[in-house]
Write a protein that binds this DNA or RNA. Structure first.
Length: 536
DNA sequence: TCGCCTTTGAAGATA
DNA sequence: TATCTTCAAAGGCGA
């Protein structure tokens, strides 16, 4: 719903700002708050809702660029405001001890404070957005335009703490493009094409803040031209991956024969043009490194979970910046590859696995996986693959089939024999997390402030697994049952269902997640879950 | 070496 | 039109 000034919507019907559902969730959260207030619900849930609301307001106010913390309270009594602030602070410290200071101090924190990264990065991304060439029609060189959002851009530039990356790319004479990507992949980066000088000049100060966008212009695995019909210039783009990319990325001391073969194959096949990144992907690319650094995580799946929660924690404006950025990317992508379609890449990724999956799972009411059959509380009964996050091998024909009311798409819930979902829908309450992520009560919480901060979330906790059907939440009335401190272990959640389960849900259903689907008593009242670090 | 995991969003395919 | 499916990034891990 962030109907930003799209500026025409680009060259396709789908160029409008994406992911309205995502932001719709915030509205739903507001409704959720309304429900809460109607129900006179008190306690942590309400506190959290207020907190989040205040955070959003603060964020928006900060984005407004003119508000001074506390300035808006002038109309009200100082004592009232102070008491409210105290209460809010108290609540937030109880719920999000790391996040609130950040929101209050509005980014005036040390770089190592992970929470400060939100505005940092968002604004840095927005900086790039500001400099992004506007849609000017295919085949034309985009020309710089005044910022789209002066309001938000002002505080963006005033963010005092800049990441090293930011500084690196923000320097008046940035070092000749980050070599990390190219070096990492062992390929030489072609020189910048002159016709992209506009891009570079426009984004040199900000592009570094968005690694992906950097790669857009600085790391072209392949020079475009022959492979993209209709495109006048050989414009490098990281979205282009040669079919034999892995071979290409290997050292050059390969035998000439291999190179020749790959060349032939290359010529035979069209280069793979990757899809443009959506808003979340852009956000992920930008924030991944920070999460890794703060949380010492390496597994992308775990990192992505954190990032997903953080994404939901972003304010509307912050998300809108990424949406806008993604929209620009799509526009540029369309300009660069007019004939490209997402369909071109269909079947190039997981066809085999999918086919396999379909073969073994043809029955729509397929038997429940161990997760569904035994629940998270009985993981000891799970089969090995389930424990290892792999596909369940415990196929019990005739068993585990849930009665009708249970959504068939998510076997994890509702099965009479599966106590976890019904008895303790804790997955949406918080501690219902894989044992690998749940530290023993005696185990101290992560001492690294960076880890805690990296996982700090002001938003209601979202289940680690795929979104659930609303009906699955109706029976979720119990609070956090067996809570424990959630350590940031870097291990994946063994209890999570496959992403395919989520994907079986409609985007709308997914889009309403988490706010709309989260019961008021649980959505915001997720206790202290703020990513990885929770305490009972 | 390949696929899985995990996240959200966009777009194509299908009913 | 609504729903479903696939892919985009990332890197550890298991088969």
């Amino acid at each position: 719903m962030p109907q930003l000034d799209s500026g025409g919507g680009g060259a396709g019907g789908g160029d409008d700002l994406g992911a309205p559902d995502e932001l719709l969730a915030f509205q739903d959260e507001g409704e959720e708050q309304d429900d809460k207030s109607r129900d006179s619900a008190a306690g942590p849930e309400r506190d959290l809702a207020e907190l989040k609301s205040s955070l959003v307001n603060e964020s928006e106010g900060a984005a407004g660029g003119a508000e001074v913390p506390g300035a808006g309270a002038g109309a009200r009594g100082e004592a009232e405001v102070g008491a409210e602030a105290l209460e809010r602070e108290h609540t937030s410290q109880r719920l999000f001890p790391d996040k609130l200071p950040e929101s209050l101090e509005d980014g005036l924190k040390a770089p190592e404070c992970a929470s400060g990264m939100y505005k940092d990065t968002v604004y840095s991304a927005f900086n790039l957005l500001m400099h992004y060439p506007p849609h000017s029609g295919a085949g034309q060189h985009p020309q710089p335009q005044p910022p789209l959002h002066n309001k938000a851009s002002q505080p963006a530039h005033s963010v005092p703490q800049l990441s090293p990356l930011y500084e690196h790319f923000s320097s008046p004479h940035p070092t000749p493009a980050p070599a990390d990507i190219s070096q990492k992949q062992g390929v030489h980066r072609p020189l910048q094409t002159p016709d992209l000088s506009g891009f570079y000049s426009l984004t040199s100060g900000s592009m570094g803040q968005l690694p992906h966008t950097v790669s857009w212009f600085t790391h072209p695995p392949l020079m475009l031209g022959s492979g993209v019909p209709g495109h006048p210039a050989a414009i490098p783009h990281p979205a282009i991956i040669p079919p034999s990319a892995k071979q290409e990325l290997q050292p050059y001391d390969r035998s000439l024969k291999t190179q020749a073969e790959s060349k032939v194959e290359k010529e035979a096949k069209k280069p793979t043009i990757k899809k443009p990144l959506n808003a979340f992907m852009l956000y992920m690319k930008e924030m991944r490194a920070k999460v890794i650094a703060e949380c010492t995580l390496k597994e992308s799946a775990a990192i992505n979970q954190i990032l997903g929660r953080r994404w939901h924690a972003l304010s509307r404006e912050e998300q809108a910046k990424y949406y806008e950025l993604a929209r620009k990317e799509r526009q540029l992508h369309m300009q660069l590859y007019p004939g490209w379609s997402a369909r071109d890449n269909y079947g190039k990724k997981k066809r085999r696995s999918r086919e396999k999956h379909q073969e073994s799972n043809t029955d729509p009411g397929s038997p429940k996986k161990c997760r569904a059959r035994f629940g998270l509380n009985q993981q000891t009964d799970w089969c090995g693959p389930c424990r290892r996050k792999k596909k369940c091998i415990r196929y019990l024909p005739g068993e585990g089939r849930c009665p009708s009311p249970v959504p068939s798409d998510d076997s994890a819930l509702g099965c009479p024999g599966s106590p976890a979902p019904q008895d303790s829908p804790s997955y949406l309450l918080l501690p219902h997390l894989p044992t690998e992520l749940l530290a023993s009560p005696a185990e101290p919480a992560p001492t690294s402030p960076g880890v805690s901060a990296a996982l700090s979330l002001p938003a209601p906790w979202t289940p680690p697994g795929p979104p659930r059907h609303p009906a699955e939440y109706t029976g979720a009335t119990t609070g956090i049952s067996e809570t424990g401190s959630l350590a940031c272990t870097g291990h994946l959640a063994a209890s999570r269902g496959p992403s395919s389960e989520r994907k079986r849900q409609s985007p709308k259903a997914r889009g309403h997640w988490p706010g709309a689907l989260l019961p008021p008593s649980q959505g915001a009242g997720s206790g202290d879950f703020r990513g990885c670090t929770t305490s009972a």
